[in-house]
Design a protein around this nucleic acid. Structure first.
Length: 432
DNA sequence: TCTGGGGTCCTAGGACCC
DNA sequence: TCTGGGGTCCTAGGACCC
């Protein structure tokens, strides 16, 4: 029988901040989204204050100030690097691994015997904590969906961060207390519909008729029901190349001038193209979108997009920037106050199967070399060491990120400084 | 009056995830 | 005043084919 372990970092972004600022331990911490717009991560103490996930920060600012909540802008460079370190440790300790998100990974662990699994899970947990400072929880169960449930329990009930849900009696007990909207794959809409069918708990969903539910909902629902019953339908997935790459940001302020939007779009295009080449793909086309503030009741609400396909798939930033600008000009309307633009790279395919243009093969090769050189300079010397004029230099539209901590682990200039008062004695760091 | 059957491909929109 | 960003999968419906 398959056995899955789900390793999930506890309040990951908040924990990353705490690693470099231990004074935050035991205190409420929240992390804001890009542009300091929404609250996207909370420490347990912040959750206890009733601060919800995804809420606009301006509505909670007062409560945060009154309760001494420590508020930070997102520091994705730091979180991404911490994530890589954790995933590397996991991959070394367990060969069958699927990195599911920045802070989660599924493991296949059935080759260990009954007791060993729990012991090993605790060992994994301690190793990650010791080497990175990040606390994790591990749920163990016969399907991925149940391992998600188990992880939930591991977090809530302080069972040394590990919870075993392989026993069917335990499954009965846990699922009958587990709200249906907490199940992986059941969101707000589906749980509303399930409630109208008198299904409120995971056990009630598990005991429904999978075929009938498939007809009413979809195959995804059928699989969820099977998985809750301990029948594994979802296997570990290997890392696949992305099928599309999006890069977009809201502006830090209103933008009306086409030139400024073009700069921002060029900048996002550059980011997207770097990701494209990193995964060894070329794009067959682009789609560009542009919109005003869609939340606002006042003013004109405008949302539009345009796309174009390339004659030959390409990974050349210059070519893609110029195509993106053409799309943008076709949807830009003078006089509106814009809030956001973005680019989607479409129709991605592996570069090695790229159809060569017979008449310009050599030019393509030279362009490749140029892109490789730009990428390697930016990798070595830091992002944006070399950039495109089209991206502009003053960038007044750039997003707000006023409360970001230093990128301690990826920038030499931002290393953690330790100030020791009084008598200074040399000390050694830990074994990691 | 009455208008087949079976298939593919594409896209938009919905729902979900972190 | 102030509301993130980046993904995936599924389905329905339209267009088109023979």
């Amino acid at each position: 029988m398959p056995t899955f372990g789900l390793v999930d970092c506890n309040n990951f972004y908040a924990s990353c901040e705490r690693v470099f600022n231990p004074r935050l331990e035991g205190r409420p911490v929240v992390i804001l989204s890009n542009n300091d717009g929404c609250i996207i991560a909370r420490s347990n103490e912040a959750k206890q204050l009733g601060i919800p996930m995804g809420a606009p920060y301006y509505r909670w600012r007062k409560l945060c100030e009154e309760n001494g909540v420590h508020v930070f802008s997102s520091n994705y460079e730091l979180y991404g690097d911490m994530s890589q370190r954790i995933m590397q440790i996991l991959a070394e300790m367990c060969p069958d691994i699927e990195i599911y998100s920045i802070d989660e990974a599924f493991l296949r662990v059935e080759s260990f015997n009954q007791q060993d699994i729990i012991k090993y899970a605790k060992h994994i947990r301690e190793t990650i904590k010791r080497c990175t400072g990040i606390p994790v929880s591990i749920g163990i169960a016969p399907s991925k969906t149940l391992s998600k449930v188990a992880n939930h329990i591991a977090k809530k009930q302080r069972r040394n961060g590990v919870f075993d849900l392989r026993n069917t009696k335990m499954q009965e007990a846990v699922l009958s207390q587990f709200a249906v909207d907490n199940i992986w794959g059941i969101g707000r809409r589906l749980s509303e519909q399930l409630n109208t069918m008198n299904i409120y708990t995971a056990k009630e969903l598990r005991d429904s008729d999978p075929k009938a539910m498939r007809r009413r909902f979809s195959v995804v629902m059928e699989k969820t029901i099977q998985e809750l019953g301990g029948i594994s339908c979802l296997s570990l997935e290997s890392i696949k190349a992305r099928k599309q790459i999006i890069s977009s940001r809201s502006f830090g302020r209103w933008v009306t001038a086409l030139e400024e939007i073009e700069e921002a779009l060029s900048c996002y295009t550059n980011t997207a193209c770097q990701k494209l080449r990193e995964q060894g793909s070329v794009a067959g086309g682009v789609s560009v979108f542009l919109h005003t503030n869609l939340f606002s009741e006042k003013g004109i609400r405008y949302h539009n997009n345009a796309s174009c396909l390339f004659e030959n798939p390409t990974g050349d930033t210059r070519h893609i920037i110029s195509a993106a600008k053409k799309c943008l000009r076709s949807i830009y309307k003078f006089g509106l106050q814009y809030k956001k633009t973005g680019i989607v790279l479409l129709d991605l395919s592996p570069k090695q199967y790229q159809q060569q243009d017979f008449f310009s093969a050599q030019v393509a090769e030279e362009n490749d070399l140029l892109m490789q050189t730009v990428d390697s300079i930016n990798r070595k010397l830091g992002k944006n060491t070399v950039f495109y004029c089209a991206e502009g230099t003053t960038r007044p539209w750039q997003m707000r990120s006023d409360l970001r901590t230093p990128r301690y682990t990826t920038r030499w200039g931002e290393l953690l400084e330790v100030k020791i008062a009084g008598d200074v004695k040399p000390f050694s760091t830990s074994s990691c």
